[in-house]
Design a protein around this nucleic acid. Sequence first.
DNA 1: TTGTAAGCGTTATCAA
DNA 2: TTGATAACGCTTACAA
Lengths: 325, 325
Amino acid sequence: MMTVSRALRGAYGVNPKTRERVLRTAKEMGYIPNQVASNLAQNKTNTIGVIVPDIGLSFFPNVFHQLESEFSAQGYNLFICCSYDQPEKERKEVMALISRRVDGIVLAPASWKESYGAARLILDQDCPLVLIDRRIKGLDVDTVIVDDYGGAVSAVNHLIEQGFRRIVHLSGGQNIWTSRERLRGYRAALRDAKINIKEAWIILAGLTVESGEEAMTRLLEQNANFDAIFCVNDPVALGAYRALQRHGGKAPKPIALIGFAGIQETEMLETPLSTVQQDDARIGREAAQLLLNRIGPNANESKPVCLKIPTQLIIRASTTALIKS
Amino acid sequence: MMTVSRALRGAYGVNPKTRERVLRTAKEMGYIPNQVASNLAQNKTNTIGVIVPDIGLSFFPNVFHQLESEFSAQGYNLFICCSYDQPEKERKEVMALISRRVDGIVLAPASWKESYGAARLILDQDCPLVLIDRRIKGLDVDTVIVDDYGGAVSAVNHLIEQGFRRIVHLSGGQNIWTSRERLRGYRAALRDAKINIKEAWIILAGLTVESGEEAMTRLLEQNANFDAIFCVNDPVALGAYRALQRHGGKAPKPIALIGFAGIQETEMLETPLSTVQQDDARIGREAAQLLLNRIGPNANESKPVCLKIPTQLIIRASTTALIKS
DNA sequence: TTGTAAGCGTTATCAA
DNA sequence: TTGATAACGCTTACAA
């Protein structure tokens, strides 16, 4: 039995002839080893859990693609779970992954404050954890994020350089790290330019096309006298763009519009949208490396790392030629 | 030990007081059951494997979203694997899933002919299997597909009704079911309208934006005298659109363009693209139901089912106002 | 190089 | 209602 086990795994200490014979017989029998039993015996599952708010949303497919490549190459399979931004579902998925004894977890937390418990649960089991895209309040753990603050500053600075002063921000929920940081960047850029910050111009939209369209429509109906919009992300910018097209008559003048994240869709509009591009694939790659370094016998015991991936300002017509309506 | 096991699972035959005491103690200890051991003992993993060409591609995120919802609600976790259209990688992933003793597999096969072996492998292990989006030659198994043929016919008929006769088809690789069916529909529609089929106008592009752009650019350089284009899918149509914009001067006249699948991006172009819409969520939902019906003690033993989800023709400016260049 | 025994953490089965 | 025993199919540790 042990000889067969060794032969099939390609372990040392088996006579080449014996190994040959084992492999041949296994093939003849159509024998497929039971990984579940192996996992139990080894207390190692070669499995990684990935929890994201929504796999179909904006940049997560890109990140996941990269995670899949990296981990698959190392012989891992991935469990993927969606929290749909609900901390309770997130918690439930964390429990499931821990019960299944995954070797590590990649988490894009649902909430800045409410995801703490779920993350704590993971760490208390000594399960390696890497956070992506969003941080969690009070938690020091390996993390790969984007320079949301810096990106927002560069976006708003760009608007200011183009001569805009009346800049609205369509923001995302403040329970999400990225939304907070981008709002912080918006404020900082205005402050540094000595432009008065109007709280009424910081509008809670959300992170979806629909929420952007709604928020923009409301704003237009108020006949607000703004001349530029910085959106928390590209889907919201797309929604705002749609609203401008539909209710454009109400816009005070040509409007400048800039988003964040660099999704493909906004590039091909009649007026292509400016944006702050982030390197999705790199987030996935770095996260995978970080996690792999924490797994296994020669696991790295060093202090948690936080990688902040730089962004790139992409200037298109929506902030130069503007959106006429 | 058995009492604890029963209590934690919520099984019958435990004194309420005892159960109470067990649950309390487990909580105090921070005890988390080991699913790996449970899986081994029960020979059941509550795990489903999903294999798709690329999770980030076109409609797979939508399908996956639905799969996740359905299975998660039933207590299953999902392994997700990408074949990247390579039959060998697909085969490798199938082996991994079988070794891990998943309770069922949802497969979007990489190839019409070359995926047969992988699927056979699954069925030979008596592992429930549902195919989505694409069929496999010679394989009769539960399947959820779109009415690709009918959708293609309706798209081409629409072009014909608009008065176009010189219709080009940018097709996808013929090793993929959907590409084959859509090409078949193109031929049938032309034949029924007694329009001569020019083989030179059936152009192998691929399934990506890039491939569509390339193919269209090549065609424009040939000064071909066509007046409409039916694309195998929306990404290819988007690529063709781009090419028309860039090299438009070479287009013989305003061109009609229609795609397939109904991705969001093409709706917001300067000239919104017509398309054949498919119900992605429904594919996921039906596939999940089909698979769940084949799992467990009261598994359905009926003959394999093939669900063909109807499509819907969406007419936009690209086939009525046309694309001027 | 091969083989034996014990154990991984559950659950099925049968007895108390 | 509770408990003892033997799997589940593999791997680790050690002996031959």
